[in-house]
Structure formats: structure tokens, C-alpha cells
Write a protein that binds this DNA or RNA. Structure first.
Lengths: 339, 339
DNA sequence: CTGAAAGCGCTTACAG
DNA sequence: CTGAAAGCGCTTACAG
């Protein structure tokens, strides 16, 4: 079933069939109707690969993330897919596990697929992994993270404000000794949040900040993170003369891991230690110690990324844009009593 | 940068380039090396759409699910993507929200993309939505669910055993009045679990079973489910003369919603009501009432589905297979005390 | 407004 | 083992 068949049935040329079906180029109403009838009659289904080959651009967008299994990422992927589908675009999902080599491989895949655009959360800010896409003129928007190359759009949390919200609340509860539980230190959130924590603590004397960061290769998936992060943080802080009392976690899974470790170790939250973090998660309000977090507008991030992508497609020369979205502090009880 | 360029640089024909690059057909070692060198030199990147058009089959598999945002689905999608990537296949993800019309549209998309296979969790058992794929000879494996058409492979939980595990534990804790909190009643899990609950309760006198099911169109996404399910179950049971004491939830999000509702309503778990469910979720062990669940081997389900898909591709005539995976009961405290 | 024809970049019988 | 050539199903200048 091809244009050939429809053209024959409708008594027109394949060029006319194409014009009718893509809505490009004017066609007389009568012939258009004949084409549509034939399409209906023969229950024609188009071939996307043929179209892609000819136009050198697929109606597909690529999403390159560390791991869709993370709640934050899953929600974002959902929003992205929905926005893409509304425009008739398919979504190809790639999980890198923060591995630079796999990231590169997936970029190759995107190029080979001729995707119309890529939304990515790159593992580091300065790797040249996304460069081939940019060079090829493929629109790229990074989410949650930034890259050095200024040709990519970006949408991410206002980390300075978000961190401030968390730290100020902790300070108000009397905490002075902080631990930053970070994931990929090479990525934007860690860098910005750490800087913001230092800034926030600098203005209060007698405060300390310890960094508990996992290396790039250690954060492999939700399950592994859940099993290892908490223990490694506990090990780190156990060796300190004075045990820190405030733990700020980079994401909901790390936070959960730490809480589980504390529970097993008999460390009570918030009595012995406050634990707060970035990203909300279903169930956080039901914890024995309901979790105080700064939530990100995930759906908005996903939708904005797609908007930027399509905007770029239609206006390739416009200046690059970086969109910052506002955090929302959700005060529960893990930050301390009486809050 | 096409085969033409490589052929010229290597002094061979495009046919030879193809044979070297796809590993099909014998080529002399010397010529093969010249081709590989040229590929390297020119940093050639292949065109997947061209290959797809010619072969009438993309190295892509499609995943059609209700919503990747659900923890269970996200984990499965992760496993599927990984298994696909290992074989050089891309993954296209589609969210239907259990909407039959969108399901149909996505099936069209899969056909238009010429995907090599589809993994789907169809909204109902008897809709003909997947038929066009089957008719076209595209391998299909359903996950978590079954369809009437016996041409599709399937991998799903042994719902009978899983349900039994949950109900027996509840009965042992003295519960007699049960509520089944279900999602899409038209899908396999609801049907099988409900049947299993009835069977399990039939053998114990004095038991009752109430069904709290959301319609097909009501379950739209994680956020909405979270906000509505708990309240609707509470409303339903509040009107009963005798309040049920055991709630069995179809998934982690419904369970969370119900728990939140109970918390707000001052209903204590497990003192006033036991709440258990299907699927584990990070954080369930940290709830004020740690949640007893029957967990599914999600990664295994995802990987098995991909295995079945590829097996079917290489052996199109083999009999259809239905794989049942074993549940794991994780006993915590929401089922009752002293367990 | 319309059609003939070229061409996107591969793969694969076919002939040698 | 190797190459010439056809063809997968579209889109798009080009000419009218």
C-alpha cells in the first residue's frame, strides 16, 4: 500500500497524494477529496522511514537521560512524551547511567535516526558528547543540567533559590553542621547546589559543610543507589569527631537510601538528624518522619523543553535560551520539630 | 557521507561496503580492512531510515504502556531499554493512559515506523487494538496483561499465587472484611486477582469482599490517581454499615493514595485498617506503617519480554508462549501487628 | 493547480 | 568473493 496505489485509485499523481496528505502545496478541493477517499478506502498507512529518508529528518525526538527509573526522570519523560505525541512526534528514550561512553553511543544513534531534536540531561558540563548534534544543526535542549557549549537551550531548576529554601529552614531549626549528599558531582545540580550551600552557610558563623559525593561511575541505577548511598554516607560521617545533624540529599532515591540506613542504625529523624532533599516523591508524607523537600515542577520542565525544541526547529537562528523554573518548598517534619 | 563515499575511498562497490558493515556475506579480509579504514577515516555514520526503508524493518522496538510515570512501569521500561540497547535496538515509548483510542493511534505509529516488535500492556483483554500488528506479522508480547488473541506472547505475574500470599497473611491476622482496590477492571491483573481473592475467601466462612474499582477513563496518570483513589475508596466504605478492615491495593500509587487519605481521616494503619498491595516502591519500609506488599520481579519481566520478542523474530512460527513470574511477599507491618 | 522524474541511502537478488 | 543495478516509499524542485 503506497502512494502509487492511492494515486491510481484517485486518478492523480503521487505528487498530488503527497501534497494532500502532508498538507503542503495547494490542491483543488475535488481532487483532495478523491485522494482522501482512496486513502480511506484502501486503509492506507504511511511509511515513516521513507518520509524520513527523503526529508532527512524524522518526526521523532530523542530523550537522553541517566535512568528513566528515577521518579523525577520518569515524570519528566512522561511529560515530554505527551507533548511530543500532541505534535505527532515519536519519542525515543535512552538511559546512560551517567556513562560518558554510552552517552556518546546514544548521540550517534540519534544522528543515525535523523531525529528532529534531542532533550538530554548530560552527565557532565564540559564533555563534548553533544557537540556532533549541535554541529549537525539538530536542536538540543538540556534539562536539569547545563553544558558549556552555548548552542543548546536549557531548562532547569533555580538551584540557588531552592537550596536557600532548604538551608534557611535547617538553620532556623538550629542546625549548624551540614552534609551535602550529592550524586554526579560533575553535573550542574551538584555544582550549583553546593555553591549555594556554601554561600548560604558563609553568612552564619559556626557552620560546617561536609560533602558526601558518589563518583560518576558509582551511581548506576535506582536499585544500586538505594543499596549503597546511605551506607557510604553513614560511614563517612561516623568517622567524624562531631556527627553532623543536617543532611541535604540530591534526589529522592538518595534520601530514601539514607533514611533506610538511619532507620537500621537506630538514628532517629529528625531527633538525631534532619534529612531533607530535592524532589518530592509519592509517599514522602507518609514516612514515620514525613520528608521536607524542595519540589521541582517536573511536568513544566518537560513541556518547556519540548516547546523550546520546536521553537528552535521553526526558528533555527534565534538566540539560545536558558529557562529557570521555580522550586516549591514542602515543609513536613524531617527537617526538625516545631517547624 | 554515504556508502558511495566509502566505496570510492576503499576502491570497492557499495555492495561490498554493505556486506562489511552489516557482517552479511563473505568479503576478503583485505577488502574488509580497506572498508573499515575508510569508514574510520571519513568518520562515517549510517542512515537508519535508509536501512529501514530498504529492509522494511526498523531496528527499533516499541513499548506501549499506560504511563511510564508509574514506578512499576518505569522500572520495566528501564529494563526493556537496556535489553534493547544491548542488541543495538532503539526504544520508542508510548503512553496511552488506558485510553483505547490512543492505544490504536500508537499501534498505527508502530506500523508506520516498521518497528521490529512491540511490547505492550494493553488496556483491555478483548479490544482488537493489537490485531493490525499481529496481522502484519510484527512480534508482540504483552506484559503484565494478556489479550484474547493467542498470537501474542506474554509475561506476567502469577497473580493467583501473589493474591493468595497477601490474603492468607491478612486472614492469619484475623481480618474477615476485605476491600479490593482495583484500577482498570478490564485488564488482566484486576480480573485474575479478583478471582483469586474470591477463591481464597470462599474457603473461609464469615468473610466479605467489596470491590472498589475505578473506571477505565478515570485512572489518568499518577498525579490524578494519587489525588482521587483514596478519597473514593473512603467514600465507598464510609457508607457501609460495617467498615472493612483489610484493603488490598492494585498498585503502589493507589496504595499511597489510600494511606494518605486514611492519615488525613485519622484512620490508623494497621490498628484500624490493614493496607497491603501489589508492587514494592522505594520508601515503603519507611512509612509510619511500613507496607506489606507482594513485589514483582520487574526487571525480569522487562528482560523476558525482550527475549521473547527477539526469539519470535528469529523463529516466527514457534508456538506462542505465556511466561508467569513468581511474586515475592515482603512482610512489613501494614498488614497487622505481630505478623 | 498539476504531473513526470529525480533522488534520499541503503540492501539484495542476480550474474559472474 | 565481487559488482552493477534495481528498488524500498516517500518529497520536491521543475516545468507547465
Amino acid at each position: 500500500m503506497t502512494y502509487e496505489d492511492i494515486a491510481r485509485a484517485a486518478g492523480v499523481s503521487t505528487a498530488t497524494v503527497s501534497r494532500v496528505l502532508t498538507g503542503s502545496g495547494a490542491v483543488s478541493a475535488a481532487r483532495a477529496k478523491r485522494v482522501m477517499d482512496a486513502v480511506e478506502q484502501l486503509s492506507y498507512r504511511s511509511s515513516r522511514p521513507a518520509r524520513t529518508l527523503r526529508r532527512q529528518r524524522a518526526d521523532t525526538i530523542g530523550l537522553i537521560v541517566s535512568d528513566v527509573e528515577y521518579p523525577f526522570v520518569a515524570s519528566m519523560a512522561r511529560a515530554v512524551e505527551q507533548a511530543a505525541a500532541e505534535r505527532g512526534f515519536a519519542l525515543t528514550v535512552c538511559n546512560t547511567d551517567e556513562d560518558l561512553e554510552r552517552e556518546r553511543t546514544y548521540v550517534d544513534l540519534m544522528l543515525e535516526e535523523k531525529v528532529a531534536g534531542v532533550i538530554a540531561a548530560p552527565a557532565t558540563e564540559d564533555s563534548p558528547n553533544l557537540t556532533p548534534l549541535l554541529e549537525a544543526g539538530t536542536p538540543v535542549v538540556t534539562v536539569d543540567r547545563l553544558i558549556a557549549d552555548r548552542r543548546a537551550d536549557a531548562v532547569l531548576l533555580d538551584n540557588a533559590i531552592a537550596t536557600r529554601l532548604l538551608v534557611d529552614d535547617l538553620l532556623a531549626h538550629g542546625h549548624r553542621s551540614f552534609v551535602a549528599v550529592l550524586g554526579t558531582t560533575t553535573a550542574t545540580p551538584s555544582r550549583e547546589r553546593l555553591a549555594a550551600m556554601r554561600a548560604a552557610l558563609a553568612s552564619t558563623s559556626g557552620t560546617t559543610l561536609t560533602v558526601a559525593a558518589s563518583g560518576l561511575r558509582e551511581t548506576v541505577g535506582v536499585q544500586h543507589t538505594l543499596e549503597t548511598i546511605g551506607a557510604s554516607v553513614l560511614r563517612l560521617t561516623a568517622s567524624m569527631r562531631e556527627r553532623p545533624t543536617a543532611f541535604v540529599c540530591a534526589n529522592a532515591i538518595m534520601l530514601t537510601s539514607l533514611m533506610e540506613t538511619f532507620q537500621r542504625a537506630g538514628i532517629r529523624v529528625p531527633d538525631d538528624a534532619a534529612v531533607v532533599g530535592f524532589d518530592d516523591m509519592p509517599g514522602f508524607s507518609l514516612f514515620a518522619a514525613p520528608v521536607t523537600v524542595v519540589a521541582q515542577p517536573v511536568r513544566l520542565i518537560g513541556r518547556s523543553a519540548v516547546d523550546l525544541l520546536f521553537d528552535h526547529m521553526h526558528n533555527p537562528t534565534r538566540e539560545r535560551r536558558v529557562v529557570r523554573v521555580a522550586p516549591e518548598l514542602i515543609l513536613r517534619r524531617s527537617c526538625g520539630h516545631g517547624g
